[in-house]
């Protein structure tokens, strides 16, 4: 570089800076596709409707007065949820203690391996 004219070093430097910053901007844009996908998948895979639905079905089943029918429905819910939703569902309905404002205490457990939902509700 001895005999070389070195007047324009700033131009070279700016050229490098601009090209590298553009390169990193390109990386950022590439990443945005991955982020969009994981977000959408996260929302899709969260079993919001499944849980709401199981919950309303359990509350409805708690109204069943015949013990044999209740056991049948309980088995239906557990086995169909396992085979169609890959979710373990179990619930229990107990009578509230005498003098309570509520008539029943309901425990619901839901677990599909990713999302677990547990609830104890007075009904």
């Amino acid at each position: 570089m001895a005999r070389l004219n070195d007047d324009a070093q700033w131009i070279v430097l700016m050229g490098f800076i601009v090209s590298f910053s553009l390169f990193f901007l390109g990386i950022v844009i590439n990443q945005s596709t991955v982020v969009g996908q994981t977000t959408a998948e996260g929302v899709l895979e969260f079993p919001k409707n499944d849980i709401l639905d199981i919950r309303s079905e359990v509350l409805q089943s708690s109204k069943i007065t015949v013990a044999a029918d209740f056991d049948d429905v309980k088995k239906d819910i557990s086995s169909i949820a396992l085979s169609r939703k890959n979710a373990i569902v179990s619930f229990r309905v107990t009578q509230a203690p005498p003098g309570s404002t509520y008539t029943k205490i309901i425990d619901i457990h839901y677990n599909n391996g990713v999302t677990a939902y547990n609830e104890t509700t007075n009904y």
Partner: peptide
Amino acid sequence: IYTPGDTHISDM
């Protein structure tokens, strides 16, 4: 920029 994630929005 229409990401793979955007197709899921209509699914949702």
